[in-house]
């Protein structure tokens, strides 16, 4: 069937062209995101302050592990104040912003995000003096059968609100200590076909997270639908005394998956963990 072979190669050629120009560019960042989130501000592209790491090929677009590695210590005089994350080509590119303090000890972060397609992922660090530095990396979300949703929605829904702290066992007082916070939440994107009305089409996601140690802020975050279901965050804090590590989060539901104009406030949840020497 010659005709069909020809047709197939025509479609292939088209698809290849489609791929080539699909996403490997800076347009969305330059024309939209930079202006929207950092209007008029100069951002230096550099891996000297933070370095963003993500797998080049994301085998599971629903769970892409990313790490932000800080290249400077958090001191009272000079520290990373905020890290903002974007996935350029996601339906809602803003992933989250994470405010850190000198009490964090080290401004490293790790989390799992959703990456819908081939895209730059970028992290912008804002220093306490206001200077901005950006680290970026390109991620190819693979075309397997998984979708950037979450494998088992009902299980996450039933467990919603549950939190766990996990600390590395060898706690050395007064040194930055790696801490993991697990939150159970389906973090529903709200992206779906509009055929019937019997399903909830609203997004439903965690919008704020606050972690404190003895009421001093360690990590304060605003987050969005690009955070994977059952979010998992890693960060540092200095356990220089006995006390209480506390995590609080709130969630929200928005009418549109890509606009934050009409949203209703959800509930708040809290979890504590006792630090002993």
């Amino acid at each position: 069937m010659l005709f069909k072979t020809y047709l197939t190669s025509a479609i292939m050629a088209l698809a290849l062209i489609g791929n080539a120009h699909a996403t490997n560019d800076e347009n969305i960042w330059q024309q939209e995101l930079h202006q929207q989130y950092f209007a008029g501000k100069n951002i230096e592209e550099s891996n000297e302050i933070i370095k963003l790491e993500a797998p080049y090929r994301a085998e599971d677009p629903a769970l892409v592990p990313i790490q932000i590695k800080s290249q400077i210590p958090q001191t009272a005089n000079k520290y990373i104040k905020k890290i903002t994350l974007f996935v350029d080509n996601n339906p809602y590119p803003f992933v989250g912003e994470f405010e850190l303090t000198p009490a964090s000890g080290k401004a490293d972060l790790a989390m799992r995000i959703r990456v819908n397609t081939y895209s730059y992922v970028r992290a912008i660090a804002e220093m306490n003096d206001g200077k901005l530095y950006m680290s970026k990396t390109f991620v190819k979300a693979s075309g397997g059968c998984s979708a950037p949703i979450g494998a088992d929605l009902d299980t996450a829904m039933q467990r919603l609100g549950k939190m766990k702290f996990k600390l590395q066992p060898d706690t050395k007082m007064s040194e930055p200590h790696l801490t993991q916070l697990l939150i159970s939440h389906p973090n529903i994107t709200g992206m779906q076909m509009d055929q019937v009305t019997r399903f909830i089409k609203k997004s439903h996601f965690i919008d704020t997270i606050k972690v404190t140690f003895n009421d001093k802020a360690i990590l304060t975050a605003k987050t969005d639908i690009a955070i994977s279901a059952d979010p998992n965050f890693r960060f540092y804090f200095i356990p220089n005394t006995t006390g209480t590590l506390k995590a609080e989060f709130t969630d929200t539901a928005c009418e549109s998956p890509t606009s934050r104009k009409v949203c209703t406030t959800g509930k708040s949840y809290m979890q504590t963990y006792t630090i002993k020497p």
Binding site: T8, I11, M12, L14, A15, G18, N19, A22, P61, N116, T117, G143, A147, P148, I149, L153, D154, M191, Q192, M193, Q195, V196, F199
Partner: peptide, 27 residues
Amino acid sequence: KLSRAILTRSPYYFTKSKEQFGNQLTS
């Protein structure tokens, strides 16, 4: 639970399908 799975996954599959498998799927 099939309907829910189809509706939530379809927008993503359609994009992938066009980009990567040469299928033009629509609603």
